[in-house]
Computed example of a mutant assay.
Amino acid sequence: MYTREKQLKAFERLLDIMDDLREKCPWDRKQTMESLRNLTVEEVYELGDAILEKDTEEIKKELGDVLLHIVFYSKIGSETKDFDIADVINSLCKKLIDRHPHIYGDAEAKDEKQVKENWEKLKLKEGNKSVLQGVPQSLPALIKASRIQDKVAGVGFDWEQPKQVFEKVKEELEELQVEVEQNQQDKIEDEFGDVLFSMINYARFLKIDPETALERTNKKFIFRFQYLEQKAKENNLDLSEMSLAEMDKFWEEAKSLKL
């Protein structure tokens, strides 16, 4: 690991390179905050993939890409004289100190739950009109549901036991089944959403990240289906003409293999 001096030197080098690119590279010179936005989202997802794969070398590279975007936005901000990288860092430092009075002040926080409760109360004191104000509208629905539940739990709006949440899951499933039997399409969608929301809440009580759990299942399914495709090809079989029993034979084989 590098010393603090070398870490700061590396960051200074990055800032110098960003200055060069912004001045001399036609592509970098053309970019705006708006044009970078989608690229930033993509980089964050690539970082997420690397974390799920536990690929530390790839995590390092993707963190670099995310850091580049932070420096890039800050460079653009300095050109319009709105803010620069020092403003970004100082603003973050102030927020971290203000939001951790149990470290930098006289408040107490005995556990993670109390830290979260203090955090949400502090944000309301800072001017947030709602606990949910900080949940980005553009978040994917599954992640948004998880963040919503985290935030309201932070101010005490929560179940007490996992068993209660599971009972809610069963209740929502029963309500969904009623609408399915009555063939009420708009109500089916509403109840299906309620089932998903309650399952995401249950995941929180089980200390499982629902996004990670679903992505692991996606990867598992892809692996098994591609194994099925491979075996069909090796046996000169056409998937569209195979019976479910024939496909299931290869599927079960795939289940016995590790990703």
Rank of each mutant, 00 (worst) to 15 (best):
M1G: 14
Y2E: 12
Y2A: 15
Y2R: 11
R4C: 15
R4I: 13
K6P: 01
L14C: 08
L15A: 06
D19F: 02
D20N: 07
E23H: 07
E23S: 06
K24M: 12
P26H: 05
D28N: 08
K30W: 08
Q31D: 04
S35Q: 04
R37G: 08
R37M: 14
N38C: 07
V41Q: 03
V41G: 01
E42R: 12
E42A: 13
V44D: 02
E53P: 03
K54H: 14
D55S: 09
T56Q: 11
E62G: 02
L63M: 13
D65H: 05
V66K: 07
V66G: 09
V66F: 10
L67K: 09
L67P: 07
L67E: 09
H69V: 11
H69N: 11
I70C: 03
Y73V: 04
G77I: 03
E79T: 07
K81M: 10
F83H: 07
D84I: 03
I85R: 03
A86L: 10
D87P: 04
I89D: 06
L92G: 00
K94R: 10
K94A: 02
L96N: 07
L96P: 01
P101F: 00
H102G: 00
Y104P: 00
E108M: 02
D111N: 15
E112N: 11
E112P: 00
E117W: 01
E117D: 05
N118S: 12
K121I: 03
L124Q: 15
L124W: 07
K125F: 01
K125W: 01
G127F: 02
N128M: 14
K129Q: 07
S130K: 09
L132D: 10
Q133R: 03
G134V: 01
G134M: 01
V135C: 01
S138K: 02
L139F: 13
I143G: 01
K144N: 12
A145M: 13
A145L: 10
R147E: 14
I148P: 04
D150S: 11
D158F: 00
W159R: 08
W159N: 07
E160I: 06
E160F: 09
Q161D: 15
Q161M: 15
K168Y: 12
E172V: 06
E172C: 11
E174A: 10
V178I: 14
E179D: 09
V180L: 12
E181K: 15
Q185C: 09
G193Y: 00
F197Q: 05
F197P: 02
F197L: 12
F197N: 13
S198G: 00
Y202R: 00
A203D: 00
R204L: 12
D209Q: 06
E211P: 01
A213S: 13
L214M: 09
E215W: 04
T217P: 01
N218R: 13
N218K: 15
K220L: 12
K220T: 13
F221T: 15
F225E: 11
F225H: 14
F225V: 13
E229I: 10
Q230I: 07
Q230H: 14
K231M: 14
A232W: 05
A232R: 01
D238R: 12
L239C: 11
S240V: 10
S240I: 07
E241T: 14
E241W: 06
M242E: 05
E246H: 03
